[in-house]
Design a binder for these strands. Structure first.
Lengths: 132, 132
DNA sequence: CCACGGGCTTACCTATGCGTCAAACCAGTT
DNA sequence: AACTGGTTTGACGCATAGGTAAGCCCGTGG
């Protein structure tokens, strides 16, 4: 009745992945046009294997991290075994470092903003109390 | 000869602000069309006061924080003195909280990614050593 | 036989946030 | 008068990441 779950299977339809990861089939096709996924075909129908599924997971993580599909594409090329070239890897590690710096900066800015909002909120509350 | 600096003056031309904050005049006009800035006019020429300059600073911080101009616009409405309504403020504080959660999530994801990159780098180095 | 669910492709549409001219208008100077 | 520099409004362009049909094909079940 219920097929084995993600990890255990080896063949996935586009809708399977879409459902599993809560994205649209359109998005998946889009990633393919950008070269991030390269599903096989049976006739004209896409057939994804575990490898594609793994890549998709990395794609989605990359997106959560705020990287562009272009960046993610570069990152994915790291996983193309043999071509693991030192320079490439360094370049990507640098990108990740930059991204971390940016996020830390943002967190700091946010602390400031939060402080201001609390202040505004306090004033608002006082005003409400007086008006009441 | 040299005019007083930002803080001390009260009138600014569009180019003054653009220069001071390292953005284009086009960007400033764009913010105006979006209602984030409302400079006065002398004839057809925009004239900005300290208030506009202050708002611009907030706009730029909002952008650093990754908020959309729409969000920033909402945030700025907080500074419209009297209308500091409790609900509004809460709503925005929520947004900031959400943003913080997101950033923390991103930082966590980044730690994972960094770990993986280090691993890849290590493998690459080993391979280089063997090849050498 | 025919409808129905999925999948495919092509192609146009959207939202963001400006960049990049273009054409025009003043103001002050030479 | 001509030129320079700054400003204005319009309007089109661009990149990113898909959304949203439209139209076609295929296999299945009633």
């Amino acid at each position: 009745m219920n097929r084995p779950e993600g990890e255990n299977r080896d063949l996935f339809a586009i809708a399977d992945l879409a459902r599993e990861f809560g994205i649209s089939t359109r998005a998946i096709r889009f990633y393919e046009t950008k070269g991030l996924l390269t599903p096989e075909r049976v006739g004209s129908t896409r057939v994804f294997r575990r490898r594609d599924r793994a890549r998709l997971i990395l794609i989605l993580r990359g997106k959560r991290l705020g990287f562009s599909l272009r960046d993610i594409s570069d990152y994915l090329s790291l996983y193309e075994a043999d071509r693991t070239q030192h320079a490439q890897v360094k370049l990507l590690i640098d990108k990740v470092d930059q991204r971390m710096d940016l996020l830390e900066q943002q967190l700091a800015d946010l602390q400031t903003t939060i402080g201001e909002l609390r202040e505004i909120k306090k004033l608002a509350n006082e005003r409400l109390a007086q008006a009441g």
